[in-house]
Write a protein that binds this DNA or RNA. Structure first.
Length: 893
RNA sequence: GGGCGAUUAGCUCAGUUGGUUAGAGCGCUUGCUUGACAUGCAAGAGGUCACUGGUUCAAAUCCAGUAUCGCCCACCA
């Protein structure tokens, strides 16, 4: 036990304890030690990531869960790691190159990859260090990266398995193409946004027809006209019956295209005639297949028009759009332009407008994988909290579409497919590692597919790949399935759903039992926090200005289950102030104790020395333990945080510490010892309850208060167990005493109201007489009398069962009985009455003048409404004051 | 087009299975250099629980509808 300094200095303390915990190996676990496992895998942040408030919330919640389970004696592991974040990371390095006037195409692939690895070595640890600053109790010995050898092996293994099962295929389909990143994206990576665009109506002349023989089509993307290979109408649309089987002339290019009929076409939309561009639109692609139309890709990878675009070749797609519209107008083929709002896909990495485009890519067949994923959720083996996400998950899973997994970038897991180059062979196969020869013809001439896999193709294996899969390690057997997954709902499809499918497919078991989806952290205007908006609050700034504990506490206390949270910097004062309060309570206790308390593990209370107040705080502590357990189990972390806050501040500090001042300042020695015992017991257990949220402060106080006899560190101290009423009563805590103290607190509150009602200054004492509601309480109060006095600011307190005041006295009915107040003997009644009388008179005069001002029509007509309001307020105040003074004078009769 | 969430004090939000007088933090008002703490203490003001109807002995809470805001999903060009 060391003396606590007056002020709490988190900066000095937080780093110290974090290093100590790591050095002691408290975060580390071994499967060989057995016990009951509790496992969480971190949602791996991008290596390029910088900690934002969303992370801070996510990590704090996980740390709360993990720290509590560890204290409860579970064999607990929290596996940390980072994601290689294919496109995001490659973009960062490419941006760097661009500053030097270079691009990745200026160098061999290997050289570029070396640059990325180098970048990762230098900067990839940033977010990990930030997690340490937060206090995360991750097992750093198990740190993983999605491109570690082991994890890469898992990725290749999975690819080959799915390939051999024919669940991976390659084909030419319409995919989402990001022209800026130069790669295909999955459907989930295309973010739809409603935009105000136009609907251009364009005239397509009939071949060999007269001047007025034409079909008008409507389109939002006129530049794709260059790739049109048909115009479609609904077979039942009579307006177009006469065009069935006709041939049209494509404007500008003058290509001949057929009119086809297809049920897909909605006669009610646009003109009822659709231009069909199979290479640039998913619907048109389907129609194109049904009608065996040619598919003409008119753009390059960079979304510039290619040589299929005739005169527009080389133009950017949007420049082309403008030019084509102008040209159509000039040719008299543009019928009209309508305003039209529609959803446009954007790249989730760089926000460029997605170009739907025909492309040769790799896909995973998802329907067969989804079945098991649907069953385990419907069967309740994987539960979502809050439950409403179950429906979102199932809706997506039941309508799942194939997953485009190939990316035309370099950073990531290279697709393990090889193509034989031997003439007449052209065999294609998938295998782990470098092949020596073509398995079909033995040729050594072959090459690997140049593409890499979607980043999520490694993340979906995370819950088991981090434990060494596909090797059957002891860790894997022990720690899998993991217990809880904590993440934000924006990656429920990207990650959560796919992990469930992968778990079922490759492990034959669920990846986690429960998914807690917390809210998204927003600014006070409800916008997502982001660097580009400049509205983000850097968690590191909060740690610097307040403390990591304050950050954690505030975030958790303010985030209701699954609701978004709106944050501004001032909100973190909540956590800071709370920390200070606890710090000072500890200092108070320390100044009154002579050394570390004895037998802290299981202190025995002496029933005959426990007052009702002692029993009350003990009972409240045990109630709190139960409440905390329930809230945490139900992921109601805000309620948990607030319960601890309420207990520490309002139960322990406001009442118990105040109460304890009596026995501690000159009470009997045995009473003093007993109070210290109770205080230390309650304080140490409450610190344990708080530790998962505020790990640093609680550890500092654990040592400062000398609680290390319980456990070397609060991190590994036993999580308190709630005792029920019977168990408490065998330890001297009687229910009757507890309810008596509740009544007493209420009565004291009412007595303070009484004082305030009669305008008594805090320093001014009064006498009180209590006429108790029944004799049992009367005896209690009699025994407790001295303890009441400071609360009541009382000169003396009498308890008289049959007290009837001889003259009128101010009184109030309390749960303990009727409380009378008297100022006799504390003030010179005559002088005080004279003074009050004068004050009363003055107040009444002021009131009268205000009334007159208000009644003066002149004044009202001239005055601004605010002034009138001010005068009215003043009048109300004066009237209240007048009433108070009158009452007070009556009380002094 | 489909789905989800929100609407409660000046602000930001809790409010669990319907049940006394609807709570907290911040802000505001009044008074306190109280021997742990002014990052504090005590007291106080402030609410038509978005709206309309229904169920019930009883509704912020359940049901139906309306409005506003936000989010997610979606191949009407």
């Amino acid at each position: 036990m060391s003396e606590l300094p007056k002020n709490y200095d988190p900066k000095a303390i937080e780093q110290k304890w974090y290093d100590w915990w790591c050095g002691k190996g408290f975060f580390h676990s071994e499967s060989s030690e057995g016990g009951k496992p509790y496992t969480i895998v971190i949602p791996p942040p991008n290596v390029t990531g910088i900690l934002h408030m969303g992370h801070a919330l996510n990590e704090s919640i996980q740390d709360v869960m993990v720290r509590r389970k560890r204290m409860q004696g579970f064999n607990t592991v929290w596996v940390p790691g980072t994601d290689h974040a294919g496109i995001a990371t490659q973009n960062v390095v490419e941006r760097q190159l661009r500053k030097e006037g270079k691009s990745r195409w200026d160098m061999p692939r290997e050289e570029f990859l070396n640059l990325v690895w180098e970048w990762k070595r230098q900067y990839g640890g940033t977010i990990l260090n930030q997690l340490k600053k937060l206090g995360n109790s991750c097992d750093w010995d198990r740190l993983r990266f999605t491109m570690d050898d082991g994890l890469s092996d898992a990725v290749a293994d999975v690819f080959v398995r799915l390939y051999d099962k024919k669940l991976i295929y390659r084909g030419e389909y319409i995919i989402n193409w990001c022209p800026r990143c130069g790669t295909a994206l999955s459907d989930e990576e295309s973010e739809h946004e409603t935009e105000n665009g136009h609907l251009w109506h364009i005239r397509y002349p009939v071949k060999g027809g007269r001047k007025n023989d034409y079909v008008v089509v409507a389109t939002t993307r006129p530049e794709t006209l260059l790739g049109d290979t048909a115009v479609a109408v609904n077979p039942r649309d009579e307006r177009y019956t006469k065009f069935h089987g006709k041939t049209l002339i494509l404007p500008i290019l003058n290509r001949e295209i057929p009119v086809i009929v297809d049920d897909f076409v909605d006669p009610a939309f646009g003109t009822g005639a659709v231009k069909v561009t199979p290479a640039h639109d998913p619907n048109d692609f389907d129609m194109g297949r049904r009608h065996e139309l040619p598919m003409i890709n008119v753009m390059t990878d960079a979304a510039e028009m290619n040589d299929q675009a005739g005169p527009y070749a080389g133009l950017d797609r949007f420049a082309c759009r403008a030019k084509i519209v102008a040209d159509l107008q000039a040719a008299g083929l543009l019928v009209k332009v309508e305003e039209h709002s529609h959803a446009v896909g954007h790249c989730y990495r760089c926000h460029t407008v997605i170009e739907p485009r025909l492309s040769l890519q790799w896909f995973v067949k998802m329907k067969p994988l989804a079945r098991a994923g649907i069953d385990v959720v419907k069967g309740g083996r994987v539960r979502f909290v809050p439950e409403r996400w179950t429906k979102v998950y199932l809706d997506w899973m039941e309508n799942i579409r194939d997953w485009c997994i190939s990316r035309q970038i370099w950073w990531g897991h290279r697709i393990p497919v090889f193509y034989c180059e031997a003439e007449g062979c052209l065999h294609q196969w998938a295998q782990k590692g470098k092949p020596e020869a073509c398995p079909a013809c033995g040729s050594t001439q072959f090459h690997q597919d140049p593409d890499v896999l979607d980043t999520w193709f490694s993340s979906w294996l995370w819950p088991f790949s981090v434990f060494g899969w596909p090797k059957e390690s002891d860790d894997l057997k022990f720690y899998y399935p993991t217990t809880d997954l904590v993440t934000a709902p924006d990656i429920i499809f990207f990650w959560v759903a796919r992990m469930i499918m992968a778990g079922m497919e490759f492990m034959g078991d669920i990846p986690f039992e429960r998914v807690y989806l917390h809210g998204i952290v927003r600014d006070t205007q409800g916008r997502k926090m982001s660097k580009s908006l400049g509205n983000s609050i850097d968690p590191m700034d909060i740690i610097n200005d307040f403390s990591a504990d304050a950050l954690r506490f505030s975030l958790i206390a303010l985030t209701a289950t699954g609701q978004d949270v709106y944050i501004s910097k001032e909100k973190f004062e909540l956590g800071r102030n709370f920390g200070t309060k606890i710090w000072n309570a500890a200092r108070f206790m320390q100044t009154h104790s002579d050394g570390p308390p004895a037998n802290m593990k299981d202190p025995q209370f002496q029933a005959d020395l426990l007052t009702a107040d002692d029993q009350h705080i003990l009972a409240r502590l045990h109630k709190l333990i139960g409440v905390c357990d329930e809230h945490i189990e139900r992921c109601r972390f805000n309620d948990y945080a607030k319960a601890v806050y309420e207990f520490f501040w309002h139960e322990f500090c406001d009442w118990y510490v105040e109460y304890a001042k009596q026995p501690l300042n000159g009470g009997a020695a045995d009473r003093k010892a007993e109070v210290l015992k109770v205080m230390n017991y309650v304080f140490s257990r409450a610190l344990c309850l708080l530790h998962p949220i505020m790990p640093f402060l609680t550890e500092e106080l654990w040592h400062g208060m000398g609680y290390t006899a319980i456990a070397e560190s609060i991190m590994i101290a036993p999580w308190p167990t709630a005792l029920d009423e019977n168990e408490l009563s065998t330890r001297g805590v009687q229910a009757a005493a507890v309810s008596y103290v509740d009544a007493k607190h209420a009565a004291i509150g009412l007595a303070r109201n009484l004082r305030a009602d009669y305008g008594l200054a805090p320093a001014q004492p009064a006498d009180f007489i209590l006429r108790p509601a029944n004799d049992a309480i009367g005896n209690r109060v009699r025994g407790d009398r001295a303890a009441y006095l400071p609360y009541l600011k009382a000169g003396k307190l009498e308890v008289e069962a049959d007290f009837i005041p001889a003259k009128p006295m101010p009184s109030i009915i309390t749960p303990l009985g009727t409380l009378f107040m008297s100022l006799d003997g504390h003030v010179d009644v005559a002088a005080e009455r004279r003074r009050l009388g004068e004050q009363l008179q003055k107040t009444e005069q002021e009131l009268e003048s205000v009334r007159k001002r208000l009644e003066n029509e002149n004044f009202v007509s001239r005055a601004k409404p605010e002034v009138v309001e001010q005068v009215r307020t003043r009048k109300r105040e004066l009237r209240e004051k007048c009433e108070k003074l009158t009452k007070l004078m009556e009380g002094m009769q």
